[in-house]
Amino acid sequence: MLSGLYNYWIAILLMAIGFYIVIAHSNLFTKMIGLNIFQTSVFILFISMGKVDGGTAPILSEAYTAYSNPLPHVLILTAIVVSVATTAVGLALIVSINRRYKTLDEHEIEQQELEQE
């Protein structure tokens, strides 16, 4: 049964990649992309939990009796919309940081701060 836990492992791998990008990349813009990868990995984790073998999409129909769990789908729908809202706030912050420091590299920003003191 390779596929039994495979979804979860890939979700964890994607989470690790997103986490790595957030820590290791010094460009704030790339950090936002890393956060997005992290978020999507959580979506895949939840949707995998809701899957039922032999089930179909949770839309009532007389032809089917087994459906996948609709609850994770609802939670993730909310999460997707909220994630875009937070991405927009993050990018607005990045734009105003770039206007002030003329760079998006966190180490250069740190240096400029030290020079000002």
Binding site: F43, I44, K51, L77, I80
Partner: peptide, 18 residues
């Protein structure tokens, strides 16, 4: 992947919004 995992509503939200 969401379509294959039966989450059609999530899939079109992710495609449009994400």
């Amino acid at each position: 992947i969401f379509v294959v995992l039966d989450a059609v509503d999530v899939a079109f939200t992710e495609a449009a919004v994400g």
